[in-house]
Write a protein that binds this DNA or RNA. Structure first.
Lengths: 344, 344
DNA sequence: TTGTATGCGTTATCAG
DNA sequence: CTGATAACGCATACAA
């Protein structure tokens, strides 16, 4: 069998409890015995058993990550590796481990999360998305499990600790950037409206139009999957309008890439014929042609703060509800140009 | 406190051990008492505690994922979400949970993996990468922990269960495709040579050249990070050669995107001036311009098989060593063209 | 400062 | 078919 606290105790000539205290670095143990015990641990190659500790402790030092269902296209988005990197950093600092939800359907994931929590596999969870009428959110709230969401919760927003960008303002500013370049016909290409982030960005876009005195045109608002087919459809529709847009606000870099692809097939040039500003500033926004002007939302930080705050919540149940806004920056690259009255 | 097996036992008027057997659906319990007990569980909203079970069982039903260090650029590669999706599927099917390594440096991750295993947090691990002289691999082997690697292990390959593509053949075929299009000056743009996958692809490329009777030119082989800067450097070098290549084998889609970007800045057209075939066939190979001809390596399947086989190993220590090769397919899109003697 | 005894929630071993 | 009882490895209240 494996070497346990008892073996160490025996070798060091102390009681198991003493060994336990040495592990916890309890101040009420003399340096002398600490040294002795540690020596014994080294000799035996002792490693504390987390499982046993968790059982005694009622705390696992593990936090759960709830992803959108893996069948979801969103899963392919580079957003996720990057938030996880941030989460991972904070978790590592506080010596927490990370556990991921599995399951392809929403239902599977829901069940999985319940098991995670009720089965005491994790101390709390981070929702890596925020969607409308989310069952999991409701469940977590009802049962008082520690959790934080990345994004803006749909309901009871002020009762849920969350880490978000000011997507409303970010979208407004992105749109204003296009307005300042002289564009008056600006369309919005968004993702699934079930995600709060899409909603906020759409609202910000609308606000900017209003502020600029530009008309709101229903036909300028399209929601699609980011895949090629979706992008093609969307662009065809937009370009077949009597007054096609000269600029686009695209809610996600990956989607923007699809749009670029479609525009290219139609022999339209960015930014000469159409300007594009998108969101997230993931690696590929720099690698695309032209490199995309994109709103950097600081994905890493989003994850980092989420994990940090969840851990605080877990370790101190009285931790107040928080709303943390991560700053964004518009990164200007090459996908936006001045509106030129005369166009090819 | 939470509802335990004892509470259920009390309510159902049976012994705790009986409840335990009902949970395990033991055949030696009468249907009648099973029903009674299950009823009690429902009433109390009972959920088994995994931690306690693990302690008694000496099995956690959790598998650990070892990522390359998150500081590594590789982390940004869409390869990872996709393997994880595959792993997740297999894990879910067998009711295993997933735990991720954290840590930015190689050293951090090494320590984390040791903790995971020695601390009995996981039953086994999957290495999501394979690099040369990997400490973790050595450690796992020496200590007899169940693990499988995705990719080809550097050393003692036949002693380690691994799931891989035939990257050698895949690269040879990719290169042959270019040869068949009439190209004679074919360069190789690869990633870090510490990763086995890079090595194999390079070897396959070389083999194809040899078979085609084309000269091996050292100056045609470049290794770079996939970022824009790297791509630019690489292309500048290649194009400043006396006889610049007319085609490229690029070891990764993301890198190919960087190359496309750079070529575009240099006003070179793909595939008219230069043909490109790359690897992995991740989503963005379809979204790029032109859409990339890419070798589909079935990333999902790679993950799925890895998890499936690890679980077999965990559940049956006598499971034989396996080497599983996942098939690949060349997906022809628009980044390759015939070599035209006269070029602009 | 250290040791003893008990509990954490299950499973497993024996009886019956 | 079912019930006591002892692990599993560690933490902690209470003693000393």
């Amino acid at each position: 069998m494996n070497v346990t606290i008892k073996d160490v105790a025996k070798l060091a000539n102390v009681a198991p409890s003493t060994v336990s205290r040495v592990i916890a670095d309890s101040p009420r143990i003399s340096e002398k015995t600490k040294k002795k015990v540690r020596q014994a641990m080294k000799e035996l190659g002792y490693h504390p058993n987390f499982i046993a500790r968790s059982l005694a402790n009622k705390s696992t030092q593990v936090i759960g990550l709830v992803m959108p269902s893996s069948a979801d296209k969103a899963f392919q988005n580079p957003f996720f590796p990057e938030v996880i990197r941030g989460i991972s950093k904070a978790a590592h600092e506080k010596k927490y481990a990370l556990q991921m939800s599995t399951g392809e359907s929403e239902e599977d994931i829901y069940d999985g999360v319940i098991e995670m929590l009720q089965g005491r596999r994790v101390d709390g969870v981070i929702l890596l998305y925020s969607r409308i009428n989310d069952k999991i959110t409701k469940y977590l709230q009802k049962n008082g499990f520690p959790f934080v969401v990345i994004g803006k919760p749909h309901k009871k927003t002020e009762q849920i600790t969350h880490v978000d960008n000011d997507n409303y303002r970010a979208a407004r500013e992105a749109t204003e950037h296009l307005v300042q370049l002289g564009h008056e016909r600006i369309a919005f290409v968004g993702g699934n409206l079930n995600y709060m982030v899409t909603v906020d960005r759409l609202l910000g876009y609308e606000e900017a139009l209003k502020n600029a005195g530009l008309p709101y045109r229903k036909e300028y608002i399209v929601h699609e999957e980011f895949l090629k087919e979706g992008g093609q459809e969307a662009m065809k529709e937009l370009l077949s309008l009597e007054e096609p847009p000269t600029a686009l606000v695209v809610a996600d870099d990956l989607m923007a890439l699809g749009v670029l692809n479609t525009l290219d097939e139609m022999n339209l040039s960015v930014p000469d014929d159409i300007s594009i500003v998108s969101f997230n500033n993931v690696l590929l926004s720099e690698l695309s042609r032209p490199p995309l002007t994109s709103v950097d939302i600081n994905i890493f930080q989003l994850g980092y703060e989420a994990a940090k705050n969840l851990i605080q919540k877990v370790e101190n149940p009285n931790e107040p509800i928080k709303r943390i806004i991560i700053p964004h920056t518009l990164i200007k690259r090459c996908s936006c140009g001045y509106y030129r009255k005369k166009r090819g």
